[in-house]
Design a protein around this nucleic acid. Structure first.
Lengths: 153, 153
DNA sequence: CGTTAAATGACAATATGTTGTCAAACTCAC
DNA sequence: GTGAGTTTGACAACATATTGTCATTTAACG
């Protein structure tokens, strides 16, 4: 005997499914935006983090909400491809600072230019006000989930 | 010189990031909901699809928006664990139909009961009307992205 | 029928990301 | 200082999912 879902619970379940589906499409779109620069969503994220400020792999992991090991893997690939370098960190011997190379900056700019065109087009279609209100609910859902403890298992 | 983002484009970019972040949390929550039944989000999805109607692995892939190879991998694990069986398909020699075993049904019900409690709580917090309007924008974004061709690379 | 096109499962390679473990480096209280 | 706890990178094992390829099966069409 499963407990029935309330109308609000039902609405939330539908919302969750839609969000997961949209996230999949956004991921695909991100890969497509990054592809002409020879990159992927994952590499783009790390490039953008390193561009925002010089930071260690562990820093980027926290900023991106990913494990530092996952970021490390991508960063090592970016370094091998010459898009970033590991610069000495005066504050830590082992934890080097990621820095974009000229090649890395060029790749990131290519992607960001395409992303702007893409986001502008979708923003136009959906409407700024509508997007803002949806963002508010999405953010509220984020906070609610973070706070909430799951039903005991 | 990157093209600037319009206000609406900016709003959409923020929205997209929020959606991706929420999706990550939903994924984590889904895993937590499925864990007491010894399952994961991926397995739960396949179980739910097979429970909804007997279908082949390729059918489930289409229903879930996943590659049939990905579903196959999960389905093989579920079969190995005795949660589903591959039943003969009168319409196809090789493409068997997935069917839940008693054990699979029990696992799915356990998960669904927990999911209902979780969704009801979050629905209560966020409000049915707000969730419905956000769902509408999320759905509209989905459709817009599907239609839209990306800027040429 | 028979030929061609599409769908399917099997298999492999790859991408992405997590968790766990370890030793080295750092931080902080004492 | 020194010792305990934390952070970090390195390495390994695994989960999830995609893409590509192949042979087999099914479907469509003349």
């Amino acid at each position: 005997m499963n407990p029935d879902r309330t109308p609000a619970g039902d609405a939330f379940a539908t919302f969750a499914i839609s969000v997961l589906r949209l996230a999949g499409h956004l991921q695909t779109a991100g890969d497509a935006l990054a592809k002409p620069a020879g990159q992927t969503s994952a590499r783009w994220q790390v490039l953008a983090a390193a561009d925002h400020a010089p930071m260690t792999v562990a820093d980027a992991g926290r900023a991106l909400g990913m494990s530092r090991q996952g970021v490390q893997r991508v960063a090592d690939l970016l370094e091998k491809d010459g898009l970033i370098t590991y610069a000495d960190n005066p504050a830590h011997q082992r934890a080097k600072l990621m820095a974009l190379t000229e090649s890395g900056k060029a790749a990131l700019e290519t992607i960001q230019a395409r992303q702007a065109v893409w986001a502008n087009a979708l923003g136009e279609i959906l409407g700024k006000k509508e997007i803002a209100s949806a963002t508010q609910i999405v953010t509220a859902a984020l906070q609610a989930i973070e706070k909430q403890s799951l039903p005991e298992g």
